[in-house]
């Protein structure tokens, strides 16, 4: 149930910025620097989400997450669909993990 309340909270804070301009457009001008800041947010958040979080994929061996991440970078750099990126990275992680834990 707790997750449901979080979802409702997320819904409210996501809808407000989408909807407010309907009523504000006549009297607000956004400065250019603010425009660039807002546009940069998705890339900043992706960076913050990937690292250092990826080190916790395997709490005993942070290297496993790093290798899985490098695999994902390579696959997505080849312009393949996100499905391939995700499953390719999972496969590499599984193989690397079994190799590292065997040795």
């Amino acid at each position: 149930m707790n997750v449901f309340y979080i979802i409702v909270g997320m819904m409210i804070v996501t809808y407000i910025p989408r909807c407010l301009p309907v009523f504000m457009i006549e009297w607000v001008v956004i400065p250019r620097w603010l425009n660039r800041w807002l546009k940069s947010i998705p890339y900043a958040v992706l960076g913050a989400l990937i690292f250092p979080g990826i080190l916790t994929v395997d709490k005993n061996l942070p290297l496993i997450g790093v290798i899985g991440g490098v695999a994902a970078i390579i696959i997505s750099y080849l312009n393949l669909s996100i499905i391939y990126v995700v499953f390719g990275s999972i496969m590499v992680t599984i193989v690397v993990r079994s190799l590292l834990y065997l040795s």
Binding site: I50, I54, G65, A71, I73, V85, V86, I90, I94, R97
Partner: peptide, 24 residues
Amino acid sequence: ETISSGMAVAIYAMFIGLLVPAVR
């Protein structure tokens, strides 16, 4: 089961899969 044991990396792969094309 074998695949789901590697699922922990999936979400990071997804973030990377969203970021890399944008950086390209």
